[in-house]
Amino acid sequence: MSGSESAIRLLIDKYERLVIHMIARVVPDNMDREELCQDVFVKVVDKLGSFHFDSKLSTWIATIAYRVAVNFAKKKKLEMVDLDGVAFKVGDTLDMTEREDSKQFILKLVDQLPVNYKTVLTLFYLDGFSYPEIVEVTGMPEGTVKNYIHRARLKLKKIVEEQAGKEVALL
């Protein structure tokens, strides 16, 4: 263990961002996030012997993080339904001239997306995974992955346009 301890620390250094992305986008509470990130790395080290370089290490670690996040979401009964079933809480009108506020507005909408949409968007935009890699991580068909990304973007765009329109009307 002492010899591999430094290797474990290096592994965490290299892949913590990837694990944080997946966990933090799905899990709302910081304490749960910390605990789940720990679970992910414990599982990664435990199962490292079964990793045979069939895929990239990052894809393999993302798969473990994805399963941990999704299992947590199921346990806590977080939103797993389809996009059409979500009633988005939009809040205040959107001022498009304030770039940072607009981004925060969109991120609040992203938080309300169903878990499977959030995970796919995170892998695609934050981690730069390709479609085949996302298929490997999530086990979803490629068509579903593309569809989720397309529909989520469309939904976000529609809400932002509506809110930005309201702001213009108020002026």
């Binding site: 992305h21 933090a24 981004k103 969109i106 991120l107 992203v110 935009y125 932002v160 346009e161």
Partner: peptide
């Protein structure tokens, strides 16, 4: 709007270990 959505989706979560 599309640019903003792209930027927002590429924003790192503020959570730190």
């Amino acid at each position: 709007i599309e640019q903003l959505i792209d930027e927002a989706l590429k924003t790192e979560p503020s959570f730190k270990l």
